[in-house]
Design a protein around this nucleic acid. Structure first.
Length: 222
DNA sequence: GCGACAG
DNA sequence: ATCTTGTCGC
């Protein structure tokens, strides 16, 4: 099995493959959201990938997968816990997205390799991270209006690793960072565009909903 | 040594 | 992550 030290070494290797600039289609058509749901009293988890039409936000496809978690939750190694289910769900898709919005961070990680980077490099597709809480970095609160943002700066060298973005006026901001093949600016504007009436992007909300549903159905079959 | 720590 | 509907407050 993968040890903690193995995981950290693997992160370093894969991190060097991250492309921090925009390598996106001229026109976006399909945006994906991914999320993983955990069972309260067992080690079962469900991963979901939802494809939405970029323009209408209509649901185009859903893929889910249930299995047991085999890696513990360790801040900084979070991707090793969620990658397996997400990859299994990914293999069930027959249509593919132009960009993937992950529930968690990308570059805004202690070693600059959060889930969004890991998934992006593994699938070699554009990804970005949109987390609900901070993992690393310091920031000032952005203005209260939707669209306001402030930079998330690395604790050691002050590097601009992400943006703290207010997606709804008067509601707590989210943490956006680049994953793979996308710039922070493009990632930030995409999150804002996919966020209509709630704090989180519709992609994330739908993925969360289908992951929860898949877990309940799977448990009901046991 | 102490606090912080995505989901 | 999970607990969790109605309720308190602006």
């Amino acid at each position: 099995m993968l040890t903690e030290q193995d995981a950290i070494r693997l992160q370093e290797t894969l991190r060097q493959q991250v492309i921090p600039t925009d390598v996106l289609p001229a026109q976006l058509n399909i945006v994906a959201g991914v999320d993983v749901e955990y069972d309260k009293d067992s080690d079962l988890i469900a991963g979901a990938i939802v494809l939405l039409d970029y323009h209408t936000r209509e649901t185009l496809a859903i893929a889910t997968h249930c299995m047991q978690v085999e890696f513990p939750y360790i801040p900084g190694l979070f991707s090793f816990r969620e990658m397996p289910v997400l990859l299994e769900a990914w293999y069930k898709l027959s249509t593919f997205p132009d960009v993937i919005i992950c529930d968690g961070h990308g570059w805004a990680h202690p070693r600059r390799f959060g889930l969004a980077c890991h998934l992006g490099v593994t699938l070699d597709r554009p990804t970005l991270g949109c987390g609900k809480t901070r993992l690393t970095g310091h920031f000032e609160a952005p203005a209260v209006e939707r669209g306001s943002l402030s930079p998330l700066l690395a604790e050691d060298n002050g590097e601009h690793i992400g943006n703290v973005l207010r997606t709804q006026t008067g509601i707590n901001p989210v943490f956006v960072s680049a994953g793979h093949k996308i710039s922070l600016a493009a990632a930030t504007s995409l999150v804002l565009q996919m966020t209509t009436e709630y704090r989180l992007p519709e992609t994330t909300r739908k993925a969360d909903q289908y992951a929860r549903e898949a877990l309940l159905q799977y448990k009901g079959m046991l």
